[in-house]
Every structure is written in structure tokens, then in C-alpha cells.
Computed example of a mutant assay.
Amino acid sequence: MMFFDQDIVRLRAGTRVDRGGNAVPDWSPDAVSRLAITEVSIQPTTATETAAPERTAVVTGWHVQSQPGTDLDIRAADRIEWDGMILEVDGEIARWTDPVEGGIHHVELDLVRATG
């Protein structure tokens, strides 16, 4: 049985103009928009460790799912704040269609955190 009792914060970069005149993501605190998202399920998925003489890299992953009937304002370029961590969205956002009523049935996405 899945429980939708966790909350996350969606972080979306603002934009700034670089030296070449191009609009680029701006992750500075004043430029980022924040959106609280409630009642999702977050489950661990992966943990890998790669040891090298100069460092040990650890990649940890989680899977997020919204409640049935709930769409989430999250894009692949966003970041997620959860449990004191800033996590990257890994891949595209899966928006599942309700086969009976149409519209969004639920949303699923994967998150990763790399350290080391």
C-alpha cells in the first residue's frame, strides 16, 4: 500500500543573461522560485558507490509519485528540496493519463543526489 504523506519543495531556476547575451538558468537564491508540493510518496530506488584513489562517489536515488488525480508543476530542469537535501530530477516527468476519465491520473519522477 502506498502512502502519500510526504512533502517536497520544487525549485525552479530564474534566468540571467551571460556574457554572450544568452539567457541561462540562474540558481542564485534570489532568482529561484519555490513551490511547496504536498502529499506525495517518496521511495528509495538506488544507491551506488564508486571508489577511486582520489575520491569515493555515491549516487542515491528516489522515486516520487503523486496521488491519483494529481498533476505536479515539476519539469525535468527543476530541482527538488526534500529531507534537508537538494536533489536533481533524473530524466523526464511521467504524466500518466486516466484511461477512463482522461486527464492526468498521476505523476511519477526520479530524483538523484550525487556526492563525493
Score class of each variant (00 low, 15 high):
residue 62 W to C: 06
residue 73 D to E: 07
residue 77 A to L: 15
residue 83 D to L: 07
residue 107 V to A: 01
residue 102 G to A: 12
residue 86 I to K: 11
residue 85 M to W: 11
residue 69 G to D: 13
residue 88 E to T: 10
residue 70 T to G: 15
residue 77 A to M: 12
residue 63 H to F: 11
residue 57 A to E: 06
residue 103 G to F: 00
residue 74 I to V: 11
residue 73 D to A: 06
residue 104 I to L: 02
residue 103 G to P: 01
residue 52 A to G: 10
residue 95 R to Y: 01
residue 70 T to W: 14
residue 87 L to F: 14
residue 53 P to Y: 05
residue 107 V to M: 00
residue 90 D to R: 09
residue 101 E to T: 00
residue 56 T to M: 13
residue 65 Q to Y: 02
residue 81 E to H: 08
residue 99 P to K: 02
residue 90 D to E: 06
residue 87 L to M: 14
residue 96 W to R: 08
residue 51 A to I: 02
residue 93 I to C: 05
residue 87 L to H: 12
residue 76 A to W: 01
residue 64 V to H: 07
residue 53 P to C: 14
residue 84 G to F: 04
residue 49 E to N: 01
residue 68 P to T: 09
residue 93 I to D: 15
residue 100 V to R: 03
residue 86 I to F: 08
residue 75 R to W: 15
residue 62 W to I: 00
residue 98 D to C: 06
residue 108 E to N: 07
residue 100 V to D: 08
residue 97 T to S: 04
residue 58 V to N: 12
residue 88 E to D: 11
residue 65 Q to C: 11
residue 104 I to E: 04
residue 85 M to A: 01
residue 79 R to L: 02
residue 107 V to F: 00
residue 88 E to H: 03
residue 107 V to G: 11
residue 101 E to W: 13
residue 71 D to G: 02
residue 64 V to I: 10
residue 77 A to I: 08
residue 70 T to V: 06
residue 97 T to R: 06
residue 69 G to N: 00
residue 54 E to Y: 10
residue 69 G to S: 05
residue 66 S to D: 04
residue 78 D to R: 04
residue 63 H to T: 04
residue 67 Q to F: 14
residue 100 V to E: 09
residue 56 T to C: 08
residue 65 Q to T: 14
residue 89 V to N: 07
residue 103 G to T: 00
residue 73 D to H: 04
residue 78 D to E: 08
residue 51 A to P: 07
residue 86 I to M: 15
residue 86 I to D: 05
residue 108 E to Q: 10
residue 81 E to G: 10
residue 99 P to L: 02
residue 94 A to H: 11
residue 108 E to R: 00
residue 57 A to G: 09
residue 102 G to V: 03
residue 106 H to A: 13
residue 69 G to E: 12
residue 96 W to I: 01
residue 71 D to F: 12
residue 56 T to I: 09
residue 65 Q to A: 03
residue 66 S to G: 08
residue 74 I to K: 14
residue 59 V to R: 13
residue 63 H to Q: 07
residue 75 R to Y: 04
residue 93 I to E: 14
residue 99 P to V: 11
residue 59 V to Y: 10
residue 49 E to V: 10
residue 62 W to D: 06
residue 74 I to Y: 11
residue 80 I to W: 14
residue 62 W to R: 03
residue 105 H to Y: 09
residue 86 I to A: 05
residue 106 H to T: 13
residue 60 T to S: 12
residue 75 R to Q: 09
residue 98 D to F: 11
residue 71 D to Q: 05
residue 89 V to G: 12
residue 69 G to Q: 10
residue 85 M to H: 12
residue 82 W to G: 14
residue 72 L to C: 03
